[in-house]
């Protein structure tokens, strides 16, 4: 599978993009006080973990880290069926926090809409920011990322595959034509 398609980012490329995003998050928020990362299952949660590590390396502060499963908030139950529901784990209060939502690929924006609704049901964050590794375009909702690893114009029928290794560390990003 990983052999297919065009290589967009290799392992080093992913790491560089995440490092840059970590810096941007710190810069935008003037440090990381009251900043927390919430990764969207699945894919975003693994990237959020790496981002938290990068931030800790720069600022020497461990930011709170959570994961969110948006299955219960999807709007396509009738067309796509009941998908298994994953765990949502946010071991801190969201109230008055600046939450950085982390996802791997930004596409239609519907996942982010669902994730924001889910966050709102869990508390009252001061702000929600969005960080994605790849923005492939084709937005269907007025959603714009705050931090982007790579802007990549794609055709609607193409697919972005973020490949992880066994330890759930990102290996590479590929563009697959169908």
């Amino acid at each position: 599978m990983a052999e297919q398609g065009t290589l967009i980012l290799d392992k080093a490329g992913v790491r560089r993009a995440l490092t840059r995003i970590a810096h941007e998050i710190i810069e935008r928020n003037k440090g990381v006080e009251n900043v927390a990362l919430v990764g969207i299952r699945s894919g975003g949660d693994d990237l959020a973990k790496l981002l938290a590590r990068q931030i800790a390396a720069i600022e020497n502060i461990e930011v709170p880290l959570g994961t969110i499963d948006i299955t219960m908030y999807r709007d396509d139950l009738d067309s796509r069926g009941s998908k298994p529901i994953g765990k949502t784990e946010i071991p801190f209060s969201l109230d008055d926090m600046k939450i950085v939502l982390v996802d791997d690929v930004l596409f239609t924006g519907r996942t982010i809409r669902a994730a924001m609704d889910a966050l709102m049901d869990l508390g009252r964050p001061r702000a929600i920011q969005l960080s994605v590794l790849i923005d492939r375009g084709h937005r269907e909702l007025p959603i714009r990322p705050d931090f982007v690893g790579r802007n990549l114009p794609t055709a609607i029928n193409e697919k972005i595959d973020v490949v992880f290794d066994g330890e759930r560390n990102p290996l590479e990003v590929r563009l697959i034509k169908s």
Partner: peptide, 23 residues
């Protein structure tokens, strides 16, 4: 699958907003 799904839903019952828009 039913048991695993139920485990995921259990968490909602402990929230202060005990409601999701799923259905």
């Amino acid at each position: 699958l039913i048991l695993d799904t139920a485990e995921s839903f259990r968490e909602i019952n402990t929230r202060s907003i005990k409601k999701v828009p799923t259905l």
